[in-house]
Every structure is written in C-alpha cells, then in structure tokens.
Design a protein around this nucleic acid. Structure first.
Lengths: 233, 233
DNA sequence: TAAAAAATATGACTTTTGTCAGGTATGCTT
DNA sequence: AAGCATACCTGACAAAAGTCATATTTTTTA
C-alpha cells in the first residue's frame, strides 16, 4: 500500500497545512517507507497523557480532542485538532512524555510518523525547525489567550465562543448544523464546566433564538448575538 | 560602558539560564556592541500588548508580570518572568505584535537585544533555534497546564498554587517571607479573581494557620496544607 | 423488537464567586 | 504634620456555577 501513489508523502497535500511542508523529497521518501496510516474509530484513544510517544500523528481526516485529567477527576479539553494538525510533536520536541490525551471525536485517518524520521529532520533540516518554531510560537499565543478567557469569561461567554470556533474551524453541513457533533459532556469539557450547566446554557441560547438544536446537533442562528455575548458587549 | 568586561555578553552568566547560552563568541560580540542595559523601576511598563517589538528583553534582575487585558476590563497575569527569562521572543519568532504587556513588579535590570541580532542568530545558528524550540515546547506545556487549572480549580486552590509558586521561583527573605511582594490586586490578577475575594481567601488562610501576613508581605507556615489544598485532597 | 444503557434534560438546592458600599490603614506629597 | 491618595479590608447582598436527584429521550445491545 505504501508504494501506491496516493499514500506517498511526496504527493500528500495535507502536509501543506503544517510544518511537514518544508520537508525535502529525500526526507519524504524515507517517511513514506516507514510511516503508517491508521484508521481510528470515534471514541478510540490515540495516545494517553504520560505515555512516551514514539512518533507524531498527522491528522488526515476527522477531529481529535486533546485533554488532560485534572486532579478533581474532571477532564479538561485543551485543544481540538482537525485536519492538517500534527499531534505529539510538542512532546517529542521537549523530549517529554505526552502531556495530553488524544481521543478521536469522529472517525479519523491518521498518519503515524516514527520518532526517528521526525528527529532526523529536526536535527538536519533548518527550514523544518524554523517552521516548527513558528508553529509553537503561534500555539503559545493561542494558549495564552485561552488562559485569559478561562480566567475572565463566564460559562455562557465561553460556550458562545466554542460554538463560533466549531463553526469556523470544523464547518457546517448542508442544513447549516455544525459538522462536528460533540456530546454535551465534551462541550462542557471544552468550556470547563459541568454538563448540566452546559445543557442549561444551550437551552437558554435556544430559547433566545441564538441557536437551534436537533438532538445532539446544533445550528447557529444568530452569529452576531453569539459574538457579542462572547465579547461581553 | 559596553566595552567594560562585566557588561560584555561573553561574560554574562544570566545567559546560561536560557537559549542565549547557545550563542557563539562572534554572535555575542555583535550583541555586546548593540545591546542596551536598561534599568526599570517598579511599576514601569516594559512593553504593551499590540506593540511591535524591535528586540527581546533578557531579565538580568528583578521580576516582571506579563498580562493581557480581557474584554471585561480586567487584567489577567499570564506569566511571571524572573531572572534569566527572555521576554518578547515569542512575538519575534511568530513575527507578530506583542500579545502580552510586561510591567516591572520590582526594580529591574534588563538587557535589550535588538531584533536584528536575534533574527540573525535565529536564521544562522541551528543550536540557538533548537534551544528556542525546546523552550517554546516547554512553555506550551506549562500554558496547557495553566488552562486546566484555571478551568478546574477553585479560587482558593489557585491562590494556594501561586503562593507555592512564588516561594519556589522567587524565594523567601531572611524572615521567611516571600521575596516577591505583590499587591493584593496583582495576586488576584494572577489567580483570575476579584481583589476582595483574594483578600478574603488570604485572611482565611491566615486564620487557618496556613500563612502569616505582615502588611503586604506573606509567609508560608504550612507548606503541606497549602499543597494539599492545591491538589484538592 | 424489547430491554438495558447511556445521554440529555430539568428542578431544587448549595456553594462559590462577584459586586457594591463603606471603613481602616498606609504611604506619599506638600 | 496635615491632607491626600492609594491600597487593604469587611459586610451585605447578588449572580454565577456546581451538585444531587430524578425524569425523559436516545442509542445500544441482547
């Protein structure tokens, strides 16, 4: 399979979305021969916090949550990784075990790139390092912003924020519903609140005409109002 | 002054604490000639969020807060930078304006290293890039952990956490009081709560014998209990 | 398809957090 | 040293968030 044209890294367009786009033909050929394409089912774990990773995972399709178990027994979702994102690279770079757990939010296709290939490029390809560095720097800014929002915004504001985020980053289906269907519990874990509170807030958003729901599915009706709520106007 | 032995980067030991330790003699000589040593008084701003930085600031002495103004009008302190930390490098790497504002928490001595020197080394010195990359990766882990704590811990827990953090990272004086003296308002801005609540919680900690206070100054009496509170036992 | 399990939903209540108003202490300026 | 500004502190109340119990609906599985 790996020898087939489409599964060769040289021809992969997902790469364009991340630091892997800086890899040279030679590096790509090496990776093509050692990489592994994995199919992951919704709900399946990809790696767990504390685990030593022996490679990175490039998301070809689907979406994963990256979460950490807090000492109070609750899971906090720190990041949602969609197509094109590389999971595990932070841990490899820092030479640490994984700090977060990755679980598939829907059926996924991943490319597993072995540590050896990753570190080889990391030590030899300056363009790759530069791209990684820039990527990390941008991630760090996003994380700092999340800290501010977690500390200063209310549950309603943060919930409005993630609905807008999901629409922007994961898109909507033909009927206008958010493509990524999360459980109420997962939404609560992103917001950092209890499931009940999340459900209640969604019910209020619905009553106020900001959103529509149909089972788990959510449609944004009043983007403007949600945005104003998020910004605290 | 710059030609004096002690002010030459080649002889600087602060460098050992960060990525600048990887710089070569030639690079250090160039920086020595263009760098600027700045004395900043307590409360003075170093840079503001949104500002385009034309260099990085290496903390020689003193402590700075890095904060961001939330849309609700409150400042959130995202990081406390002590001796050896380099401020502004994230912005230069990402080629973005500063995301945070830096203000001195006590009298400081900073080395300002111009952007040109920084980016020169960034493009030519692989060891420097590697060190920066590792640094960013570690910072990102810390930020992710703060996100989890902000989302999942109570005000009391977070307050206990920062007291322990201040003791560990900024030390104590001869009498055992925390060396870094913050206003109640600044402590509240780290915790992400209102000043009144911060004061109340400190009063409770005092009543329970966890800490002692003398004006602004705080002494940790029961490290163990604070730690258990932090961990939520 | 029926039963079981899981997820969603709602009500009642508690705890935590935030806010406002006012008081006291502290330090700085003139 | 008096006056002023600032920071610290406290009480009373309001709002937000968390918890527990218990439906109701949806999904899974036997």
């Amino acid at each position: 399979m790996n020898s087939h044209q489409e599964s060769r890294c040289e021809n992969c367009i997902i790469r364009e979305l991340n630091a892997l786009k800086t890899l040279k033909k030679q590096e790509l050929m090496a990776i093509s021969n050692s990489k592994e394409t994995r199919t992951i089912k919704k709900g399946d774990p990809i790696f767990k916090e504390g685990e030593k990773l022996n490679g990175v995972f490039c998301v070809r399709d689907g979406v994963s949550k990256l979460s950490k178990l807090s000492e109070n027994g609750k899971d906090q979702i720190v990041k949602i990784a969609a197509k094109g994102e590389v999971m595990g690279q932070r841990s490899l770079i820092a030479e640490e075990a994984a700090n977060l757990s990755a679980v598939a939010l829907n059926d996924m296709q991943l490319c597993f790139i072995p540590k050896e290939n990753f570190t080889e490029s990391l030590s030899k390809n300056p363009e790759f390092i530069q791209a990684l560095l820039k990527n990390m720097a941008r991630e760090l800014k996003l994380a700092d912003d999340v800290i501010v929002n977690m500390a200063q915004k209310t549950v309603n504001q943060r919930l409005a924020g993630i609905l807008l985020y999901l629409e922007k980053h994961c898109g909507t289906d033909a009927e206008g519903y958010l493509s990524l269907i999360l459980s109420r519990n997962d939404i609560a874990d992103v917001v950092g609140t209890a499931t009940e509170l999340c459900i209640r807030s969604l019910a209020k958003f619905k009553k106020d005409g900001l959103i529509e729901t149909k089972g788990k599915r959510i449609k944004i009706n009043d983007r403007n109002a949600l945005n104003q709520l998020w910004e605290g106007v």
